[in-house]
Design a protein around this nucleic acid. Structure first.
Lengths: 238, 238
DNA sequence: CGCCAGGTTGATTTCGCTCAAGCAATGTGG
DNA sequence: CCACATTGCTTGAGCGAAATCAACCTGGCG
């Protein structure tokens, strides 16, 4: 699936990405300009794309793969801010705010990622208002998500938060098997799931057990079978 | 200080706001256009500016005063997302994301607030890239703040979160009295402080007591005296 | 004066964390 | 091939921080 080393620069904006992301707002000449200086390469699982506190040098467009964005404290604890997939762009927050990275990005699944220098992007941003507008919309939605998550984490139990997480992961990794029930192949470890909802891995394990005991689902490693989606979704009607 | 009813439209962009906020990116003719259709008026304490789930009709510029932005669950619990003061603009998140309001805005102190219709703003946004860019930067910083707060709330104790809150409020309401010590006139109730850091009001009360017992500060109603700012700030070095 | 909202305090419970052990799957070096 | 780490996950026991429930102040206001 992934080709080795640097990819053909022409391949850096597949149709799907042009169609579905902010990069579609570019003119073809702007796209060409970007191509010339872009660096696209394959990343292996575990590789870091950037580190918290690093200066932000530009944007990373994920063509394929999975990347986690995480913040860590000095005390060692860490929180996963979000997962990024094909089509997602990393680093625009620090780039736009003119701040260093406030989080680290680590590859979770082998990925193909294109880098665009900040200076290039800035140039386009000032020339093409549509591009900026797309970014505005994306940021606004993301800010909404962040506030939503804040509220949920503060006021909901671990059980509810886990169900929420599963429902979100279902959107990307779920495979319906019959009416109401579905299979889910988790892309991340227990540890990382715990970090996403701000709890310890032991608590996650126990909560999974409770959901299992209640007959809502079955875990087997990273494979989940959800027996009754609606029943589960009912719990989070807040 | 505040004049009654609608203000003179010319007064809707005081110099301070032009100088320090995204509205400074407008040309004077754009400013004039906005004036014509803006609605500026005085709000009393307790008034709602908009409600969660309302359609977003435009932006609210706070000229003076204090406004809380809060999200509530069905179960009655609520979280304060942020406090907005003179110079702050409300409603741009739902406006840009093209979503309904995901939070309510309530006046905490008598305020003077200008409303600009969404259509007007959209027009300017497409014509003036600088204006959009200012919004981009603001959103990016705010997203960073939201992620920071998420991490802190998830991984820090109530004590640390309260100290954080006091240090933030200090930036706006603190009055140094001598080296290291200062007075702080809180603009909000205990209930609202608790909502800002995601705890119950009883827990807040107890935590205040602990800080007092430790000799860090003294509360008397909404008046706080912080004896040793550095000592307090040391606790949050993470 | 009584009332009430805002705030504090106390008693109790609960949820999630910590620490510790165990287990299965996978890897590694002799 | 075995002995042995290592890693990811689960389980248990005990603890502690914050929530809950309830009572009680306190000051302002009709």
């Amino acid at each position: 699936m992934l080709d080795d080393g640097n990819c053909d620069n022409n391949a850096c904006f597949p149709k799907k990405i042009i169609k579905e992301t902010e990069w579609g707002a570019l003119t073809s000449s702007e796209r060409e300009d970007l191509f010339k200086l872009s660096v696209c390469r394959k990343y292996q699982v575990g590789e870091m794309i950037f580190h918290q506190a690093d200066e932000c040098r530009g944007l990373y467009l994920i063509r394929e793969g999975l990347v986690s964005v995480r913040k860590q404290c000095l005390d060692g604890s860490e929180v996963i801010i979000r997962l990024a997939r094909g089509g997602d762009t990393l680093g625009y927050r620090p780039f736009l705010a003119d701040q260093p990275h406030l989080a680290s990005a680590q590859v979770m699944q082998n990925s193909l990622i294109c880098f665009f220098a900040a200076s290039q992007i800035k140039k386009i941003l000032l020339e093409n208002p549509h591009f900026g507008f797309e970014f505005l919309q994306r940021e606004a939605r993301e800010l909404g998500d962040a506030e939503e998550r804040f509220q949920q984490t503060v006021s909901q139990s671990v059980r509810i938060r886990l169900i929420h997480l599963l429902l979100v992961l279902n959107q990307y990794y779920g495979m319906p098997i019959q009416k109401g029930s579905l299979d889910l192949e988790l892309p991340i470890s227990r540890q990382d799931m715990a970090s996403m909802i701000g709890i310890r891995v032991e608590s996650l394990s126990r909560t999974i057990k409770h959901l299992t005991d209640d007959g809502l689902l079955n875990f087997s490693g990273r494979h989940v079978r959800i027996h009754n989606l609606e029943l589960m979704a009912e719990e989070i009607s807040y």
